[in-house]
Write a protein that binds this DNA or RNA. Structure first.
Lengths: 328, 328
DNA sequence: CACGTGGATGTTTACGTCAACATGGACGGT
DNA sequence: ACCGTCCATGTTGACGTAAACATCCACGTG
């Protein structure tokens, strides 16, 4: 900066003013400074800036299971929403979502240099208790658990699951089986509860739940069990990957989809339209989730006040070829 | 820091020494300082640290198409490799890999606060020219193009594609068709060239290339064309997602896999084992790629010297149920 | 013409940390 | 007892920036 100031024949302060777009600088002077900046290749030093005014213009994202379909999409949306605001993202992966790891990541971020934190961790049951975080830093949690003290954003899991179940019922199926996500996952829990509630509301028999871990393999395993039971005609699977595994199991055991059994997934991955048969599923908008999380966090950073209401992002039923009325 | 110093009855410098684990501090004093830190909840301020010693302990990752299967896996591997070293990751997404966007992201990182940059951008043909970056910051590129001035890490695309093609030939197929990735992608180009070379080496007819864009839909489109040609008995698809689309096209047109046509993909996504039929494919280790990229970058940061040799990560053929000898 | 006003620019200082140098006391050797 | 050495600890200053305050000049007004 000093070099630029000398080159332009002004004081460092004026350079600072130009760099920050202050208005009270003469146009001619501004031009001279800008030219000098370009000539010297001046880049403001963010460390010094941060030191000076206590803001870092960056937010931290604590994330587990990054390569997961939903998480990577959400992260991308967060990134897209944050960059135009002039913020950057500091990534803090945790290998397992335990209390220890999360608080560790959090305090690393705290030392590091962030103005706020988004927590994108699927499993809420952390050592039996909600995450406890030192206060003083704005935080937004992506997850619709009510157990956090922080603003929360999530997909409307319950409505999506209810829609999926109702779709199958309306097609004429007697009841709907369910392959759930892992027990520690809050979204899995919500989808399962909502599926059950929908069945009960319609006065239908509630079959036992099969539990997977989101992976195609676990869907395949569960699918093998389901395929062996001839009374199964409709299955709501808690995500598309497990649905893929189920489809495979159904193919292998010679039960045609959708003629013999109907399948609905959840997520609507890019691949789902090309499964065999193309999968009917619940589309969720990770983009909207990421976008809302960023809005809430930035608002909190600006104003210091937490936004009270949890934000819920709606889902949409996408009907393709894996559902049909039950066999006669 | 001043508070801690007062609390412990020492000077700030001693606190600094304790915080940095210097040895020349009396044990009793150290204990006293640590206790004071805990009591006050002291966190070193990284901005000041960075300002003081010119290092940031963080690296930037410029990435496009983050939710892409390979990219998210690689990013995760980078994160995993970087965190134990005490570095953190600053994410800098670019929407399109143009020269302008990349250099923009680069200079943002430069101002921001990074010690080095990993560029994870698939398409190398940036406005007809290689990326030009201002020098002075260590850079590693993930991509095996020879056109960069920087250390480079990538999967052994050529060997993988050759292995896939040879596998099909050895099964007895007369020739192998190819659905390629987008023309701007260097990996797509490598796979295509290597497929062609393998065919030529074996003295086989080289069929025209179908070009996709990595998406399942583009694979489906290409698949429809291929399915219409009864002479097609073996297809090497440049990634698993397009292979999924091809499988769907083959199902729809009633051409059984692998009895009538064999398919080999590339990537080995988690889903591929559960496609119908389970997909034979080339597994690449994104983990290894990320890991090597980080090693190279950290070495460059430490020593200041670029590592010369490009690193190539081997692939592995995974045989499942989508390949078989051609129909009699 | 003296004075007040307001805008452009300069000067000083503090942000939190740590390297470099300074200080001071304990201990060993002669 | 004197001196040199070494180790623990303290003091000073600098990193690059921007807020707060100070200065200076042009211009308008009575």
């Amino acid at each position: 900066m000093a070099d630029v100031a000398r080159e332009a024949g002004v004081s460092g302060q004026t350079v600072s003013r130009v760099a920050n777009g202050k208005t009270n600088v003469d146009d001619a002077t501004r031009e001279r400074v800008l030219a000098a900046m370009r000539r010297i290749g001046y880049r403001p030093n963010s460390a010094a800036r941060a030191l000076r005014n206590g803001k870092f213009r960056s937010i931290g994202v604590i994330i587990s299971a990054l390569p997961t379909f939903g998480n990577s999409r959400t992260l991308d949306a967060i990134a897209a929403a944050v960059v135009p605001e002039g913020f950057s993202i500091i990534l803090m992966p945790v290998t397992r979502p335990t209390q220890g790891e999360v608080t560790g990541a959090f305090s690393k971020l705290n030392e590091q240099a962030v103005d706020g934190v988004i927590i994108l961790i699927e499993q809420h049951q952390l050592d039996q208790s909600a995450i406890e975080l030192p206060h003083g830093l704005p935080v937004v949690v992506i997850d619709s658990s009510a157990r956090y003290d922080y603003p929360v954003v999530d997909t409307d899991q319950a409505d999506g699951a209810a829609t999926a179940t109702r779709h199958l019922l309306e097609l004429g199926h007697e009841t709907v089986w369910h392959i759930a996500g892992p027990p520690q996952s809050y979204s899995a829990e919500r989808r399962r509860k909502s599926w059950r509630a929908t069945l009960e509301l319609a006065g239908r028999f509630v079959p036992p739940v099969l539990v997977g871990d989101w992976s195609p393999s676990s869907g395949y395993q569960a699918g093998l069990e389901l395929a062996a039971d001839p009374s199964v005609t409709a299955v709501f699977v808690a995500n598309d990957q497990m649905a893929l595994g189920l489809l495979r199991a159904l193919h292998e055991t010679g039960r045609p989809v959708p003629a013999d059994v109907s399948v609905v997934g959840f997520d609507d991955m890019e691949e789902s339209a090309h499964f065999w048969p193309p999968l009917t599923t619940i589309r969720q908008s990770f983009e909207a989730v990421g976008h809302h999380a960023v809005s809430a966090l930035l608002a909190e950073i600006e104003t210091g006040a937490e936004v009270g209401e949890p934000v819920t992002v709606p889902t949409e039923l996408v009907v393709r070829s894996s559902t049909a009325p039950p066999p006669a």
